[in-house]
């Protein structure tokens, strides 16, 4: 009895005070941590119970020297067996419902998530699509438009579902970098800046192989899949600098495929965005016309190239071969092989 109370108290205390998770940078992260804490509480209880029974058995029921007799012939106990079948079943049911609830609150059921950008694009250019030759349009049409009708990733939470996000950023994963494109301003960057407390939507794409876009402090992750867009939508709640990690094996330098997320005040964010603008002097012009359609990932990567040991000729290759799948990437990769150790680039926090 006393042991049971003690076990419960220790489990509850540890479930809340394990301190194993990194900083929570969004409300979504807090929801996930709430779920994790409950599972830690239950898990600690089960762990203590099982280890307790084992240790007590090994001490109390160890065979004494010279004892050749058998133990009591107990072959089972139906009520007890029903109890230890029912209790895990109930625990699992509760955790299942709780997880479902958290998943819904995160925005997991937003039905439009991934397809949205493509649908918009097609709606805007109906004439052009009709005009282009059949083969061309078949090639250019993103796979995702056909492939699935449900969200990949985490969309808007139930309250904001259907609203347009405050900011949309396209995230392109390639060996071994993340490239962020801000479609409204045309800015392309090797690091991700977003304004605090704003509803941000990331469209996750991959150029070459599978990658996974992971924000540990936001408890969010989504694989980047070539030709299948996915989405992560969230609202940062804490100004700061956070690691961006690639979590899907993407080649030898997978471990170096990292970037930074800066959550900034709206003013800082606007200032940063302005500084990144291709032609900052002509700011009175409509943004759309200064949009450098041909500005490629490679050019923008050049800023960071020095740090990851990629020289600009490789980036040029990457640029020119951007559309011919693969080959550009291979040359980037082979160059990385010769590169200096990449680790200085890693975040040192």
């Amino acid at each position: 009895m006393l042991a049971g109370i003690l076990l419960t108290l220790v489990s509850i205390w540890y479930g809340q005070n394990h301190g194993l998770m990194p900083v929570e940078a969004s409300d979504d992260a807090a929801l996930v941590d709430g779920l994790f804490n409950s599972m830690m509480t239950v898990g600690t209880g089960i762990f203590l119970l099982v280890w307790g029974v084992i240790i007590i058995s090994l001490i109390r029921f160890r065979r004494r020297a010279g004892d050749e007799t058998d133990g009591p012939p107990i072959e089972g106990n139906i009520p007890l067996e029903i109890v230890w079948t029912a209790i895990p079943a109930v625990i699992v049911l509760v955790i299942g419902v709780y997880s479902f609830d958290v998943y819904n609150a995160l925005g997991g059921f937003d039905p439009e998530a991934a397809d949205q950008p493509d649908v918009v694009q097609v709606a805007m250019l109906p004439g052009e699509e009709m005009a282009t030759p059949l083969i061309d349009s078949a090639i250019q049409k993103p796979m995702s438009a056909h492939h699935h009708h449900m969200a990949l990733g985490v969309g808007a939470d139930p309250e904001t579902m259907g609203n347009a996000p405050d900011l949309t950023v396209k995230v392109m994963g390639l060996q071994y970098a993340w490239i962020f494109t801000y479609p409204e301003s045309g800015v392309v960057s090797g690091e991700l800046h977003i304004p605090n407390e704003k509803d941000v939507k990331l469209i996750i794409q991959a150029q070459d192989v599978l990658h996974a876009f992971w924000l540990p402090q936001f408890r969010l992750k989504q694989d980047a899949i070539p030709k299948q867009d996915a989405e992560l939508r969230f609202t940062p709640k804490r100004i700061g600098e956070y690691p961006i990690v690639c979590a899907e094996l993407c080649g030898p330098y997978h471990g170096a495929m990292a970037s930074k997320l800066y959550v900034e005040s709206q003013e800082d964010f606007d200032r940063w965005l302005q500084a990144q603008m291709p032609t900052p002097s002509s700011s009175e012009q409509p943004v759309a016309t200064t949009l450098p359609e041909n500005r490629s990932a490679a050019e923008l990567l050049a800023v960071h190239a020095e740090q990851i040991g990629v020289d600009s000729t490789v980036l040029e290759q990457l640029h020119s071969q951007h559309d011919s799948q693969g080959s550009g990437v291979i040359s980037l990769q082979s160059n990385l092989d010769r590169a200096e150790p990449i680790t200085e680039y890693l975040p040192s926090t």
């Binding site: 599972m39 898990g43 280890w51 997880s99 996974a212 408890r219």
Partner: peptide, 25 residues
């Protein structure tokens, strides 16, 4: 039994989608 049960507990944890999104891979 002692070590497997730890893998079993973390197994239920990673089955929970919201948590698995964080720890997968």
């Amino acid at each position: 039994i002692a070590v497997f049960v730890i893998g079993g507990i973390s197994g239920v944890m990673v089955a929970a989608v919201p948590f698995d999104i964080h720890v997968h891979d």
